[in-house]
């Protein structure tokens, strides 16, 4: 039996970490229902929106039908945020996988 102790203990010790974290979704699963791309605001507007948040943008891209920004906040926190491509509303912000902001009414 001794051989199974280590892996068993590992799983036992590590499992609570899953519950300590607020479940989020994989990047690709976030849906913005943003419609056709020709109606989207330009990427430059997205970057400005992030700048207005006080963030330093590391990377801005399209993820599914959302705009996604990787940035640093004023406090130096690494954040990953999803914006609506048409309204540029901030919909969801994650910090290393943990959800720290969700727009009211946004359930996707």
């Amino acid at each position: 039996m001794k051989q199974y102790n280590t892996p068993f203990l590992a799983v036992l010790l590590a499992a609570p970490a899953l519950f300590l974290s607020t479940p989020a979704r994989a990047d690709g699963d976030v849906r913005c229902n943003s419609g056709p791309q020709q109606n989207w605001k330009p990427m430059s507007a997205l970057k400005k929106q992030a700048w207005l948040e006080g963030w330093t943008v590391q990377k801005a891209q399209i993820e599914g039908d959302c705009y996604e920004v990787y940035a640093r906040t004023e406090n130096g926190q690494a954040v990953e945020a999803f914006f609506h491509p048409v309204t540029l509303q901030k919909l969801l912000v994650l910090r290393r996988g943990r959800e720290i902001y969700r727009a009211p009414g946004f359930t996707n």
Partner: peptide
């Protein structure tokens, strides 16, 4: 054998950051 525990922690680390099961 402690590597088993390291492997388990690695997979959790990945999962918690990525949520890509």
């Amino acid at each position: 054998r402690v590597v088993y525990a390291a492997a388990a922690a690695s997979f959790l680390h990945w999962l918690l950051l990525d949520w890509n099961w």
